[in-house]
Simulated assay, not measured.
Amino acid sequence: MLTRRLALALPALIPGVAQAAFPDRVVTIVNGFAAGGSSDIAARIAAPRISQALGQTVVVENRPGAGGTLALNYIKRLPADGHTVVIADPSSLVIAPLVNPNVAINPAADFTPLSIWGTTPMVLVVAPDHPAQDVAGLLAWLRANAGRASYASSGIGSTPQLATELFLQKVPGGMPAVTHVTYRGGSQMLEAVMKQETGFGFSVLSSAAGHLRGGTLRALAVSGPSRAASLPNVPTMAEAGFPDFDLITWYMLLGPPGMSAEIQQIWSRAMAETLTDAPTAARLTESGLDPARPSPPSAAADYLKAEVARYGAIVQAAGDRLRG
């Protein structure tokens, strides 16, 4: 008969047998941007409900730097035991590797996609006392301040930079001369716009929502195909004279590469419970994020593959303008 000690040791001795059930300790969601940004808000709203679903404490850890890629490089080297995952957006996961050859990230190979978290449009914002009252007014201001005007983003290859690039590309009569000023995260970028250190910027709505409600920023347009429910009086970029301007951002939960199917499914179920939880979904929506419909990890992987192809085409068309 097996002794109890030998029976307990067998899982460690037999290949393919798990040594411990996931999760068996604190779970960490890493966010690659500073506190107060859109991904940070989404993670902190959802963390308590994820904790309930997993039956373990869930903490959010901010590791800002290098446009969010610092956190991704950290995650891809960790054990694939499910206890440390990352919330990522297209700027760090997809765009940065496309525009910067020094970013050693392969979205397809370096991570295990677990769940789409949600989507949010971009919003074009200025300071409350900026002279531009609408997009046409901003264009007039840009032309009057050509060579002196600047815009803010959360980093090279960030979605705010990409949105601004598309906007400037579509300016009737040619692209005005505007300086790109980068900041470490979305909250710092918005603060710069509020203080008029820079003239304007595109922000994900979930980051700017509190400032817009509080009157410390003013919205000129949203980037999605329809008006945002939380900003019914703010036109779309298409309505403001920029047809076919349709750019939203998304958030995805990923783990290190090689995560087992069992752990993937545990995470997938936890995210499904979280995103369909009415109070949590309401708070995410209020923040400006549209919670994703529950889907399996394979759907997240397919979505990521399609986004790499889509952004690859945009970056190729923009050329060196997205590199500085």
Results as ranks from 00 to 15, higher is better:
I75R: 02
V123Q: 04
L124I: 04
G67S: 10
L72R: 05
G82M: 00
P97L: 03
S92L: 08
L72G: 04
V94P: 04
S92A: 14
N100G: 03
T120A: 13
A96T: 06
T112C: 01
I116F: 13
L72Y: 05
Q133S: 15
W117S: 15
S91H: 11
A71T: 00
T112A: 01
D110N: 08
G65I: 06
W117I: 15
Y74M: 14
R77S: 14
D129W: 11
P128N: 08
V125P: 04
L93I: 04
A80C: 00
D134M: 02
A127H: 08
W117E: 15
I87K: 12
V94M: 05
V126M: 06
H130A: 02
N73M: 11
V126N: 07
L72D: 06
T84N: 08
K76S: 09
I105Q: 03
P97I: 06
N102S: 14
K76M: 11
E61S: 15
I95K: 01
V99A: 01
V123L: 01
P121S: 10
I116R: 15
E61I: 12
P79M: 03
A80Q: 08
P128I: 03
F111Q: 05
A80T: 03
P97R: 05
V86A: 15
I75H: 08
A127Y: 05
P79L: 09
A109P: 10
D89F: 14
V123W: 05
E61G: 12
V85C: 09
I75W: 01
D89C: 13
A66I: 12
L93F: 03
A127T: 06
I87T: 13
I87P: 12
I105F: 01
F111K: 03
